[in-house]
């Protein structure tokens, strides 16, 4: 398989992700935010493909774009958004946001400029062809316990969501 990690696609997809992310946090209408988030998620799935992680990409599409976002859209439709559209969209602690963002950003810049030399120059080659098989044998071998706990977590989440959202049990 020819390498597909070309710079062009990386920058295209990053631009899509960042524009999507900015739209998510700036749009007034929650449905528009959701649409922007879907674009971000799909672009990220494509970036996973570039990183030779096709199975994660598929999980991203199936679970995030096809599952979680449908849930979001459902809830946006259930709650009445007409009122919230007329309200102020940003709270009064925007300065906290700016301070936190600059602080975190500064931290990231400091860490990455200082630590970028610790990465090995050449990335190790990974076989893409049996990615799914390898992920499967790790998931059901070494990470079996974590897998079971994740299933338990999902069960708890289902019960919690039903208890929360139902008027009368």
């Amino acid at each position: 398989m020819a390498p597909i990690a070309t710079p062009f696609f990386f920058y295209l997809l990053s631009a899509m992700m960042l524009v999507g992310g900015i739209l998510v946090i700036t749009q007034k209408n929650a449905v528009h935010s959701a649409l922007a988030l879907i674009v971000t998620l799909l672009a990220q799935a494509a970036i996973y493909l570039m990183l030779y992680a096709p199975f994660v990409a598929a999980v991203q599409i199936v679970l995030y774009a096809g599952g979680i976002m449908v849930l979001f859209l459902f809830v946006i439709m259930l709650v009445n958004i007409d009122r919230s559209l007329k309200e102020k969209q940003f709270n009064s602690q925007w300065w906290v946001g700016i301070i936190a963002a600059t602080g975190l950003g500064g931290l990231f810049v400091a860490v990455y400029t200082k630590g970028k030399n610790i990465f090995p120059e050449r990335v190790l080659s990974v076989a893409e062809a049996d990615n799914t098989q390898k992920v499967a044998s790790l998931l059901y071998g070494q990470y079996m316990f974590a897998f079971e706990i994740a299933s338990l977590l999902l069960l708890v989440a289902i019960i919690g969501a039903v208890v929360m959202a139902k008027k009368k049990i």
Binding site: V31, A57, A58, I61, G66, M77, A129, T132
Partner: peptide, 26 residues
Amino acid sequence: DMNIGILFMLGVSSLSVLGIVMAGWA
């Protein structure tokens, strides 16, 4: 031919739900 072919098909075809929800809402 993708390594994840069938998963890809199921995932992408499930994206049409989004379009339908949006069409109905919009």
